[in-house]
Amino acid sequence: MSAPATGATPVVGAPETRTAGPGRRWPALDARLVAPGPAWRARWVHGGVAAVVGLRLLTRDWTLIADRPSALRSHVNVVGWVPDLPAAALVALQVLGVAAAVLAIARVRPRLAFAVAWAAYLVLAGLWGSSGKVMHNDVLTVTVATVLLFSSPPGRGVPRGDLRVRWGWPPRAALAVVGVVYLLTGVQKLRHSGPGWALGDNMAWVLRQGSSPLGDGLAQALANLPAVPQLLATGALCLELLAPLLLLVAWTRPLFALAVAVMHTSIWACLGLDYSAWVLTVAAVAVPAGLPWRPPWPRGREPRSRVVAPAAPATPAAP
């Protein structure tokens, strides 16, 4: 199911001014989306997101779902049609998903394996969150993985430096999804609370009412420091609103991933909310897309007969 490199001429596309479709409206962004990209980056993003899915599947006791009475299950989600599953079936789904994620990372039938891991993750995370509360912990990973479902990850025989449109767009589509998701989280704060969300007492009250795994002392101390809650809230809001811009530029992508890690770690430390899947997903997408050098792993076979590198493609590779 993975895509071979043989038989296809490296990307030589028409100039972007001549492309049809949505490219007319957003020429620069559209040109970057469909520009060629290196195989190694597609592998890293595909494998990285598969690793996050596998880790989430592995590190949670999904059998807890079976303890929930049927009457206390909400069916208002995309897995509302899935029947209540016994613990054994939940474990079987978990094992299947983890095994598939490992195969996807190892590039053994990576497209099929990724789809199986995604499906297992979607069902289990959906059932987990069917108790009335909208659970966002796994939403970013599921959404990014959904986009990657439609991509063809490079097969084992594809050289790392192979440059094609089919390797270029999936990492960029994942970046776009991450950027828009963070932007929306920021916009919703402004929409429902206005600038007072960051500039008022909101964050101080969030800290006071939170439950920290490190004890309540830290959150209470921060809440009572002058201007600190406002600075924390403003920083978080700016990071969310600027996400698309920070992900647009190659060198700021790893910095964005770092800032996201700091923000979600501080949320965990102060409020006990686990958004580690968001941190890992952003890292899996943004770090490979921002690396200035080609990592030595994973290796691909170099072609024997010819060098597979585009000869002056009309559409240059975008970062």
């Binding site: 995309v78 897995v79 959906g126 909208v134 966002h136 939403v139 929409r191 429902h192 609370s193």
Partner: peptide, 12 residues
């Protein structure tokens, strides 16, 4: 879910 409005802590 997983289609959501992304209202994370959006209420004051």
């Amino acid at each position: 879910w997983p289609v959501t409005a992304f209202r994370l802590f959006s209420s004051s």
